[in-house]
Computed example of a mutant assay.
Amino acid sequence: MAVQPNEPKKPKKPKKLCPKVILEGTRLTRKTDLAFALNEHPGLVGTRRYRYHSPLISAEWSAFSADPWGRGLINFAAEETELAMETYRTWARLFELQRYYSWIVDRFHLSTEVFQASQGRHHDFGWLEDRLRPLGFAVVLCLRDPDTFAEARRERLRISAKPEQYDDLSLFRVEQERLRAAAARSTLPVLELQVADRSVAELADEVADWLAARGLLGTPDELD
């Protein structure tokens, strides 16, 4: 049956799956659970006969400090600015060198921009997005209704090793709005994903469908 002119065409299936997703959002927005789910979702990685790992990285790691919850690529000190920028340049170069690989990133430059701005330090990551965009990177901004943070905190406190970090939920509500503003300025494709009262599987399905509809599952060569 011929496709009618007013019927939307289904996106072409990419020859090779190598999506590149940056998950952003404040705490308690299920980013990490979603990252693991996307890393095994058939829509992003294909149908697997056995389990194996794909690249899953994060700017949240406290890699600049020996403390368990120390400084890192998001919350670096002023004197660590060049260290942070060199780290971002290194990640960008690694992505470029492995452009036909899939990458799932749990927090990245938007979180850095927002945190550093809250400390009075402003960084323009336009140069980084100029390098990420041709590779097919997209941002998924995980959000929740502000009224649902309290319930999310109750769930998190059952497993958290540092419960005091969730004492003041107003910080998360403020950061969420600042992340939305940063995402609105981004030159990368952005999906705002509401996470409250939904399963991780449902969230992963929405992300996979969104990437497919925009032709962001294949290689950089296939980008429009």
Rank of each mutant, 00 (worst) to 15 (best):
Q4V: 07
N6L: 13
K10H: 09
K16L: 14
C18W: 01
C18T: 08
C18D: 01
K20F: 10
E24C: 06
T26K: 05
T32E: 01
F36Q: 08
A37W: 00
L38K: 10
H41F: 14
T47Y: 09
Y50S: 14
S58V: 04
S65H: 07
A66R: 09
D67Q: 10
G70F: 07
A77R: 06
M85T: 04
M85K: 12
E86G: 05
W91E: 05
R93Q: 13
L97M: 07
Q98W: 14
R99W: 04
S102F: 15
F108Y: 12
H109P: 00
S111Q: 08
S111P: 01
E113Q: 15
S118M: 09
G120R: 06
H122L: 12
H123E: 10
D124Q: 00
F125H: 01
L128Q: 01
E129Q: 10
L135T: 05
F137Y: 08
L141V: 03
R144H: 03
R144Y: 05
D147Y: 03
T148W: 07
T148L: 13
A152V: 12
I159D: 11
S160R: 10
E164N: 04
E164S: 13
L169D: 02
L169K: 06
L171P: 11
L179W: 07
R180K: 13
R180C: 14
A183F: 14
R185G: 10
L188W: 11
V190S: 09
L191S: 01
E192C: 09
L193Y: 06
L193A: 01
V195I: 06
R198F: 10
V200H: 05
V200D: 05
V200N: 12
E202D: 12
D205R: 07
D209V: 07
A213P: 15
G215N: 04
L216T: 05
G218V: 02
G218Q: 06
E222T: 03
E222V: 04
L223G: 09
